[in-house]
């Protein structure tokens, strides 16, 4: 069974790029275009990993991460922030909000999968 990854991202190009890479590497990708949708999807899909953009409309990635962490059913799902935020403290803020990892945009296609997969508990393949 394919691992499920939920990608919460409002930018279509990024969404397409990451989805393409992940699917090419055999993952089932669920997309959410805003924070609330992402939280809802997480509850229904119960993904193996969540990729979370920080700069989102209505509700930013930090808030989404915090809310996800309040749900005991979802508490164990690793969350990796993917953001072009590059100012001081962004990484720490993301970790503090409940994220497990932090990938800076623009992503490096050569290392992206490695960065993602290190947060997955184990690999089937």
């Amino acid at each position: 069974m394919k691992k499920k990854i939920l990608y919460i991202e409002d930018n279509e190009q990024n969404l397409y790029l990451v989805t393409f890479i992940l699917e090419k590497h055999g993952y089932q990708v669920f997309a959410a275009m805003d924070g609330q949708q992402g939280i809802d999807s997480a509850a229904t899909v119960n993904p193996d990993l969540i990729l979370l953009d920080i700069q989102l409309p209505l509700m930013d990635g930090y808030a989404v991460a915090r809310q996800l962490r309040t749900n005991p059913d979802l508490a164990d799902i690793p969350i990796v922030a993917v953001t072009s935020y590059a100012m001081a403290g962004d990484r720490e803020k993301a970790i503090a909000a409940g994220c497990n990892g932090y990938i800076e945009k623009p992503i490096n296609p050569d290392t992206f999968m490695q960065q993602v997969e290190q947060h997955l508990p184990c690999r089937e393949e």
Partner: peptide, 8 residues
């Protein structure tokens, strides 16, 4: 963000 697309 645009670089993300280009590089990606």
């Amino acid at each position: 963000t645009p670089l993300n697309s280009i590089i990606g």
